[in-house]
Amino acid sequence: MIFAFDIIILVFLVVAALISLSVKDLLSASMIYGIYGFLICLLWAEMGAVDVAFTEASVGAGVSTVLLIATVFNTRRRSSD
């Protein structure tokens, strides 16, 4: 567990979360959500929970991003609020 590495990942994590909430284009929001999932995966791998990190990498960063994009393509691309 390296403290500086943790801080860098956590800062990126918060930034990614805020951007994916605030951006109007839902496609970009889904992509940034994928980045968020991957950062969480890095954080877990770094804390020693490799199994959880593996699941997050495949489910959170991989498949769920694809599912969100598939949903965006079949609805509207712009957020209304």
Binding site: T55, S58, V59
Partner: peptide, 25 residues
């Protein structure tokens, strides 16, 4: 490999299944 090697390394049914499903996606 992830499914079959889940005993010795990180992995197992959930992860392997998701990766296998992702290949079809």
């Amino acid at each position: 490999y992830v499914v079959a090697h889940g005993h010795h390394s990180p992995g197992g049914g959930f992860q392997g299944g998701v990766i296998l499903g992702a290949s079809f996606i």
